[in-house]
Computed example of a mutant assay.
Amino acid sequence: MKKLILVVSLLSLVVEGIVLGTLADTIAIADKIGVLGLALTPLLAIGIAIIVHWWRAREGDRTPRQLALGVVVCVLASAALVPGFVRAYSSAGAGGVPSPQRSRPSGEQSKLATPTLTPLVPSGMPVASSKACPMPDPTDPQLPPIDVKVVFWCKGDVVKANGEPDQSNFQIKMRPRLVNNTSSSISISIGNPSPLRLLVTGKQVDRRWSPPPLTKEGGDRPIVIECNGSDFWAIPPNLPHDAVATPAGIYSGFVSSWDGVDLKPGHNYFKPLRHNEDGSAVREGNLVFQVPLDENGSVIIYGLAILDRGTKGEILGLARFGVAEEWGPAVQPTSF
């Protein structure tokens, strides 16, 4: 009978060890007691078994052989914990707590593999200076010194001081955007001589050009410049506030509202649309050009250019008329 009880006890401890070893593989057990707890559990079981067998041996209920056999049984039961302990430890993080697992998506998404993110430069790997990015190819397209874009524009008639229509001129009103891509400040003041010019082709533009009074007194004039292999007349803009009321109840034309002086490196000049309390557009950042018509009542506009004041007509930037990326749509004159 004693041998049967001993065998049953041995099997019970082994089964218990296997069950505990299996449970130790679960994240819940590892998360509750930690890797250190998993390591101390078998040691605690062995210690308790030794104390119990030693105490009963003192009372004469156990022989030294049974004491040794009990220790062996505890060791075997503890050995059954090893596989689960190893698996739980391998899934644990550095702090002894298993790393969180991603829940698998259901349905069609379960067929998709989870992407693996790979760092561009592995941790600890030095980047040799000899393998750095190459120098820019000087033959590659470069940014222009000044990016020029006409964001809004419109065409308007000119009215003489007596209120009669001026059939020999019309006006172009525009709101440009300028971006300085150079390392130096660029003058964008429209004082004489203005770096901002409207490029046109036509007959005797310099003689036909008849600006309003303030612009005429300023002394600036149309000049001829070469652009992309052709010659163009480069007309300066009207000076600010250069329009008068006429007997017809309307003004003689549009007015420039420009306050640009110097454009710093990397900066831009542009006035976003704003409105007054009555809903009318705030007049700012606009240029107005007086354009003479030939005897056929026509003129060809090529674009808006900005010139370098320090050189003889070097073009720093150009927005070509009719190119959508450079010259925006025509809008209502009162909208900007």
Rank of each mutant, 00 (worst) to 15 (best):
C74I: 00
E164I: 05
A30P: 07
V15D: 01
K111G: 14
P136S: 05
A77I: 09
L23K: 02
P145I: 05
P42Y: 04
A319D: 04
W258T: 00
D308P: 04
N268F: 14
V97S: 12
E217I: 10
L198Y: 01
N296L: 07
G202T: 01
G124D: 11
V159R: 04
Q204C: 05
S106E: 02
R87I: 05
N162G: 11
A128E: 13
G266M: 03
V7N: 08
Q167E: 09
V71K: 01
M125Y: 10
W54N: 04
T22G: 15
P292H: 04
L43A: 15
F85H: 03
S78D: 10
A132R: 12
T201M: 06
A305H: 02
S12P: 04
I27C: 11
I301H: 01
A39L: 15
L120I: 07
D308S: 12
T139M: 07
P105T: 11
D206T: 07
K312N: 11
L38V: 02
V52D: 04
V97P: 07
N238Q: 14
L263H: 06
L40T: 14
L196W: 00
G93A: 06
Q167V: 02
P144L: 02
G328T: 06
L23I: 11
A281M: 12
G218K: 06
G191M: 09
K312C: 10
G21S: 10
A94S: 04
K3L: 08
V261R: 12
I235A: 04
P195A: 05
N162H: 08
F270A: 01
I48E: 00
Q290Y: 01
I172L: 15
D206N: 12
T118S: 06
Q109T: 03
K3T: 15
M125R: 13
P240Y: 08
I190C: 09
V159G: 00
S230V: 09
N276F: 08
S99T: 12
S183G: 14
P237D: 02
S230Q: 14
G322F: 04
R207H: 09
K216F: 10
R102D: 11
L307I: 05
L287K: 01
D166R: 01
D140Q: 05
G219Q: 10
F232D: 03
E226N: 12
P329E: 04
E226G: 13
L316D: 02
G328P: 14
K32W: 13
L293R: 10
L43E: 00
V288Q: 08
Y302E: 11
S99F: 15
F321P: 03
L81F: 07
Q66V: 06
G84D: 02
T114R: 11
T182G: 03
G95T: 13
L13I: 12
D137V: 10
A30K: 01
P134F: 08
L273D: 08
W258K: 05
K203C: 05
T139L: 07
I48A: 14
G191I: 08
H267P: 09
N228K: 15
G95D: 15
L69D: 03
P329K: 14
L273N: 12
T118I: 15
V255M: 08
P211E: 03
A28I: 07
D220E: 07
S129V: 13
R207E: 15
G229I: 11
A92M: 11
M135I: 00
S257G: 06
S78P: 08
I190W: 01
N162M: 12
G322M: 11
V282E: 09
G37E: 00
L307W: 00
A88Q: 02
I250S: 13
N238I: 01
